[in-house]
């Protein structure tokens, strides 16, 4: 007799649990305002990344086309993946001395793991995180970037 009742109570609780589940999905079906999907390419204009978002490494330049990088190479050694290459050049100063400046700050985006060690280790805060995140390109060579703009020079007050 006991098992006879158990048969029916089993059915009852099973149906009840199934209906509880259906209540959840049913509620979401009738509340379309809870939809969380972001419609990405449409919201590109309004899409704002967080300030600290790690998109890519960039080197900010001021309006005189000047940056803060001294070409010391600390970021190059700090990088665990070898995604930064510094090419240095020497120029003749007016006082006859030779000075080391940066020729090219090469950044391999395809090798970067966005750990942030280069930015943290930079003594002159020359490189920062950029907000750009649409990095997809058809040609891999486009991912190798030169961070200092052509013809740029170092801001005068930076001391090595």
């Amino acid at each position: 007799m006991n098992s006879f009742f158990k048969y029916f109570t089993d059915i009852f609780y099973a149906v009840k649990s199934l209906l509880t589940g259906m209540k959840v999905t049913g509620r979401y079906f009738f509340s379309p305002w809870e939809i969380v999907t972001q419609q990405y390419p449409e919201n590109r204009k309004t899409l704002k990344m967080y300030d600290r978002f790690k998109g890519e490494v960039i080197m900010p330049h001021n309006e005189h086309n000047e940056h803060r990088c001294t070409g010391c190479g600390i970021c190059e050694t700090a990088c665990p993946n070898g995604s930064i290459e510094i090419l240095q050049a020497k120029i003749d100063m007016p006082d006859g001395k030779k000075k080391r400046i940066i020729d090219k700050h090469i950044y391999h985006l395809d090798m970067c793991t966005f750990c942030g060690l280069c930015i943290k280790s930079c003594p002159s805060e020359a490189i920062v995180w950029g907000q750009e995140f649409e990095h997809a390109v058809f040609d891999r060579s486009k991912l190798t970037k030169i961070l200092n703009k052509p013809g740029s020079s170092i801001i005068k007050d930076i001391v090595e």
Binding site: Y28, F29, V36, T37, Q39
Partner: peptide, 13 residues
């Protein structure tokens, strides 16, 4: 569409 709405999505659009 039905499954999308039940899953808090918009579905094909």
């Amino acid at each position: 569409k039905v499954c999308a709405f039940m899953q808090n999505r918009v579905g094909p659009n």
